[in-house]
Simulated assay, not measured.
Amino acid sequence: MDETSQQKTSAHVSTARTRPKKRDRSASEERLLNAAEDIFSKHGFKGATTRMIADKAKLNESLIGRYFDGKMGLLFALIEKHIEDVPLDILPYPPQETVREELHKLIDSMYYKHCQKDSEFFKIVISQCLTDAKFLKRIREIIPKKIHPDVKMRLENLATQGKIRTDVDLELFIQTLDTYFHGVMLFEKILMGYPEDKLNQGMRFVVDTYATAIEIKK
Rank of each mutant, 00 (worst) to 15 (best):
Q96S: 11
P149W: 10
D197R: 13
P87R: 10
D197E: 13
A77T: 03
I143S: 03
D150T: 01
E120V: 14
Y210W: 03
G70R: 04
T179C: 13
V207S: 09
K21Y: 01
A159N: 01
K56A: 08
G70C: 05
K105Y: 06
E37I: 04
I190S: 12
D167C: 10
F173W: 02
S62Q: 11
T166C: 11
K152Y: 14
E102F: 04
E101H: 08
E171N: 09
R66E: 08
H182A: 13
H148C: 05
I143P: 03
L130N: 11
N157P: 07
L59V: 12
G44A: 00
K217F: 14
L199Y: 11
K22C: 02
D167R: 10
L199I: 15
P20N: 00
I190E: 12
L63T: 11
I39R: 12
T212F: 08
P195T: 04
K56D: 04
L199S: 12
I139G: 00
K145M: 13
T179S: 15
Q175Y: 07
I83S: 05
E97Y: 02
G44P: 00
A16E: 14
V207E: 06
K134W: 08
I164C: 03
L63I: 08
L32N: 09
D69F: 07
E30I: 15
F40R: 12
Q6M: 03
L32I: 13
M192S: 12
K71Y: 05
H114L: 13
S26T: 14
R23L: 04
